[in-house]
Design a binder for these strands. Structure first.
Length: 269
RNA sequence: UUCAGACCCUU
């Protein structure tokens, strides 16, 4: 099965989910049994294709072929059902797992925040035995999605108070909260934190987030500095800066940058 | 050989 798994995985990572599933059924019909490594790959493909019937069939197969409940498989089932919009099914899988790990708890929190059920998310957050940076960031992103940047910042602070070190995604959440609140002071602190802790500022989304924060907090000069120092830019980087210049009354500079963007080979979207 | 925060950050 491991040879098939590698092949199936190669297809899913290129977005060819349907081909992956065809390959999987080919494997079954040729007498090769799936192993616990097969299911997460193929369940994710079902989730992406919203293939509900097949997903349920494969759920049945996990019960048939797995002697013990594999945490990777359980989590993939929870994710798949939540993508189908079947929150109760996701919850049922979670409730029936004998030993839950931090990934499953975090997945459930994410499911609830996406549904706007922040009370349920908070309840899970408090109940769970251990939390890591993914868990904390899921709560931060959840509050941002649901229009509570103040609460997002509160969670970020609590995370640090608990001794969990923020990574790029966590800091980006805090930066995004600052942008919405106009909190230049904390935003600058976050920028310093990124530099001081060697977080990867070359991650385009992190630099984009910093630029956006500076623009919205009224510091165009800082935004331009981040932009100029970016080794790699995306079309979003240019959009952010063009809009930033325009919002700050620099119409001419905005148009110039818009033209430079096209010279750099970026097509306006 | 397999899972979670990032269909995110700009408009």
């Amino acid at each position: 099965a491991s040879v098939y798994n590698a092949l199936i995985k190669a297809h899913t990572s290129h977005g060819a989910h349907l081909l992956a599933l065809i390959l999987y059924t080919h494997m079954l019909s040729h007498g090769t049994q799936p192993d616990p490594f097969s299911f997460p790959i193929v369940l994710k493909a079902c989730a992406n294709l919203e293939a509900r019937e097949l997903g349920q069939q494969i759920h049945a197969q996990t019960l048939k072929f797995c002697v013990i409940v594999d945490p990777f498989v359980s989590n993939s089932l929870i994710l798949m059902y939540s993508k189908f919009g079947l929150r109760d099914c996701a919850r049922k899988v979670f409730d029936e797992v004998p030993t839950r790990n931090v990934v499953m708890w975090t997945t459930m929190i994410d499911v609830y925040t996406r549904a706007g059920l922040m009370d349920e998310a908070a309840e899970f957050f408090e109940k769970m035995p251990e939390r890591n940076v993914f868990t904390w960031t899921a709560m931060i992103s959840g509050h941002l999605r649901n229009g509570s940047p103040m609460l997002a910042l509160g969670i970020f602070r609590a995370m640090q108070a608990c001794g969990v070190h923020p990574d790029e995604v966590a800091v980006l959440g805090a930066i995004s909260a600052c942008a919405r609140l106009g909190g230049l002071g904390i935003g600058k602190w976050a920028h310093v934190y990124v530099k001081a802790h060697g977080l990867d500022i070359n991650k385009v989304s992190l630099a984009n987030g910093l630029m956006d924060m500076y623009v919205k907090c009224g510091s165009l000069a800082d935004a331009l500095e981040v932009f100029n120092e970016m080794p790699k830019r995306s079309v979003v980087s240019y959009n952010t800066m063009v809009c930033g210049l325009a919002m700050h009354g620099k119409g001419k500079e905005a148009i110039e940058l818009f033209e430079n963007m096209q010279k750099d080979g970026f097509k306006p979207n």
